[in-house]
Amino acid sequence: MHGRNNPLPPVIREVVRGSVVAEFYGAPALVSRKRKQDPGRPMEHWWIIEPVARAILVAEELSAHPELVFADPGLPSSTTQANRYEHSISRKLIEKFIEHVNEHTDRTGLDDIPADRIAPHMFRKTMSILVGTEPGAEIALGLQLKHAATRALANRSTQGYAASDSNWARLLDTAIEDARFMRLRDLYDQHHAGQTIGYGPGADRLTNTFDTVKKTAMETTRTAKTGDKRTEYDLLHKTRIALRFGKLNHCTFDHNHPDGAKCIEEAVIPAGHTGPLIDRCQPGRCPNSVITPEHLKIWKSEETSLLTLLDTPKIALCRRDQLNRQLDDVRSVIRRAQK
């Protein structure tokens, strides 16, 4: 959608019956009340493409509400403004979406979505910023965000919408750091509960650090005559452990002591780069690699898949050589974990 004087689209819940105009300066349009960035809320014409016009007319026929085209059919008339969202179809759909994602995290590798309050509009801005850096994303987002006329006129509203701002970036960095520390804290608790948190030299250094934090916390609390997990977690946070979490392994690369890291051996390091070169990671050979029991399951599954492919009759010799090299790499990871 594109307004005559303003590129921001109207609130979809404000669309009422009879809002579609067949032609407005040569294109179909939608008459709706403008709310974004305008406290006066004037009525505006918003250009739309023909498929959108047809979709709104269909929605108008299907709507059971006497005025609104996109009213939530599951909204009980007796609910108050304060709790009506909790009883809406939108809320139920979000709950089902979260339930679906959380049920398949073992297959997708995603983290569980926490049980916080989530509204539909919260997906829009974050999705746009994350997708905005991908090749061809501006065009895709222009279509997804309905900036159709804006794209045709080569304006920059899609770029501006997808561009990261300082507040969003600051919140994202904080959220990433919080999530990272929560995972580190979980590993810390698992280690001190007697569980194996990983294999390899990287895991040994990590557990030694955890033991040092535990010892320091005990000495501190003995002096203060108090003691709880909070003291240990505070010390763990202050330790600033170099640990990057990954799907196939974790990395303990420390840019202050990079010696031995396989990913930077004989590599051209970009100017200003201080971290590992992820695309050159060698989980089975690098001393910074940590293979956890969860990682090991994935590597064993990959070994089985490669053996199945190698049993394929009449496989090309070059393809067989490639599979054998991959199998050697996979088995080097498994051997490290089984030592």
Rank of each mutant, 00 (worst) to 15 (best):
T231S: 13
T126S: 14
L62M: 11
C263L: 10
A53F: 00
N6A: 06
M218Q: 14
G198T: 06
E95M: 11
R17Y: 07
E134C: 09
S166E: 15
T226S: 08
H45K: 01
A271N: 10
V330W: 09
T108Q: 08
L243A: 10
V58F: 01
K247H: 07
E61G: 10
P66F: 13
H147K: 02
S166V: 14
E177G: 01
N102H: 00
L93C: 09
S157D: 09
R117L: 13
R320V: 10
H273W: 02
L143I: 15
A224G: 00
S332E: 12
G40Y: 10
T223C: 02
V20Q: 09
D259H: 12
A193E: 13
G275S: 09
T126V: 15
T223S: 04
A337G: 05
D279H: 13
I12S: 15
D72E: 07
Q326T: 04
Q282N: 09
Q282W: 10
P201R: 01
W168D: 12
R35L: 13
T216P: 05
T196C: 08
R170T: 15
A119M: 10
L187E: 07
T239R: 12
Y233R: 11
E219P: 05
E86S: 04
C281V: 03
G246K: 01
A140P: 02
R335W: 04
I269H: 00
M218P: 06
G202I: 05
E60K: 05
F253L: 03
A154W: 09
T221N: 13
D254R: 03
A169G: 07
P201K: 01
T209I: 09
P258I: 04
R84Y: 00
G3F: 12
L235R: 06
L57V: 11
E67C: 03
P76G: 06
S164T: 15
A53L: 05
G227E: 00
K297I: 14
S332N: 09
P258M: 05
T79V: 12
I241D: 06
N324W: 01
G136N: 03
D189K: 03
Q190C: 09
L206Y: 01
H87T: 06
V15M: 15
E86I: 03
A71D: 10
K247R: 08
R54D: 14
D279Y: 08
I291C: 08
N256T: 15
P9H: 13
C281W: 02
Y161K: 03
W299C: 03
W168N: 07
L206M: 02
P7R: 04
P10M: 14
L187F: 11
S90H: 05
R320L: 02
N208A: 12
A154I: 05
D111R: 03
P293I: 08
D328R: 08
T212R: 08
T252K: 00
I48N: 04
P201G: 04
E67D: 10
R336P: 02
I129H: 01
R320S: 10
T150F: 11
L143E: 06
S301C: 13
T212L: 13
F210S: 04
A203I: 10
